[in-house]
């Protein structure tokens, strides 16, 4: 019967395997700060895209509902011509939502390219925050006085369902942008061109958050256009 002694791993076992330990490349002798900074950046990159994928899948389910109910036309009640939300308000909301989201994306790109300072970006984010809040308010107001009841038709159901999801998504976008804006204000000393600790973990976390927010804002701009096309154009 063999002896099953188990050492704590700090014994001289490695001496038996000189070849492979020599194979460890020097760069793999890890600078841990840099290693985990890079890992966190990659993770943030991946996770922000996963969240966009989740959002897209939720909308995918709604778009599926739209076309599915439209193709079934149950009881002849997919859509009656009178059932239309007011077009003017919708165009205004679309314009506000898309331009503000794109403004943020644009400002972030400029910030990343280093062409303008953080103040410039901050102003753009503040405008975006305000306009998005306005858009959300208008959406809720619109929902409260639709010219049809939610259960009137398939179209009405999908419209109400999608609008509520969109309000939720806009709130998420708003939250993201507001938090990075607030972070930038708090970090303004560090972030300014002459600021110290330009590579500190705080700055890196800020950059990742800005990138994630910008990605989501771009996604929402596309979504808003898509939803508009679906409910005002295609129908």
């Amino acid at each position: 019967m063999a002896e099953h002694s188990v050492s704590d791993g700090r014994s001289g076992a490695a001496a038996a395997t000189p070849t492979s330990v020599q194979d460890v490349p020097v760069h793999a002798v890890v600078d841990e700060q840099a290693f985990y900074a890079r890992a966190q950046a990659n993770a943030s990159w991946a996770a922000s895209r996963m969240f966009v994928a989740i959002g897209a899948t939720v909308y995918g389910a709604l778009v599926f509902s739209y076309f599915y109910l439209r193709s079934l036309d149950s009881n002849g009640l997919w859509h009656q011509p009178s059932q239309h939300p007011p077009i003017l308000l919708s165009v205004v909301m679309l314009g506000l939502g898309v331009t503000s989201s794109l403004l943020f994306v644009w400002a972030t790109r400029r910030l990343r390219a280093g062409r303008r300072g953080v103040l410039d970006w901050g102003v753009a984010s503040a405008i975006t925050t305000g306009v998005l809040a306005l858009t959300v308010g208008l959406s809720i107001w619109q929902l409260s006085r639709l010219p049809f009841a939610p259960g009137d038709s398939g179209y009405a159901s999908v419209f109400v369902g999608t609008e509520v999801v969109t309000i939720g998504m806009l709130l998420i976008e708003l939250y993201q942008i507001e938090t990075v804006l607030a972070r930038s204000i708090r970090l303004r000393g560090v972030l300014s061109p002459g600021g110290d600790a330009a590579d500190s973990s705080e700055v890196m976390a800020f950059r990742l958050a800005v990138d994630a927010a910008s990605l989501f804002a771009g996604f929402m701009a596309i979504v808003l256009v898509g939803v508009f096309v679906l409910f005002y154009w295609v129908s």
């Binding site: 939720v58 389910a61 509902s65 599915y68 109910l69 259960g151 159901s157 109400v160």
Partner: peptide
């Protein structure tokens, strides 16, 4: 997310009285 969306639609049907799953009102159990 598709499950989440489905549950949400059902919740809307039960609270906000949408008609995603009521065939008489243009929805469908399918």
């Amino acid at each position: 997310p598709v499950l989440f969306a489905g549950l949400y639609l059902m919740l809307m049907d039960r609270t906000w009285q949408t008609a995603f799953f009521t065939w008489q009102h243009g929805g469908s159990p399918y």
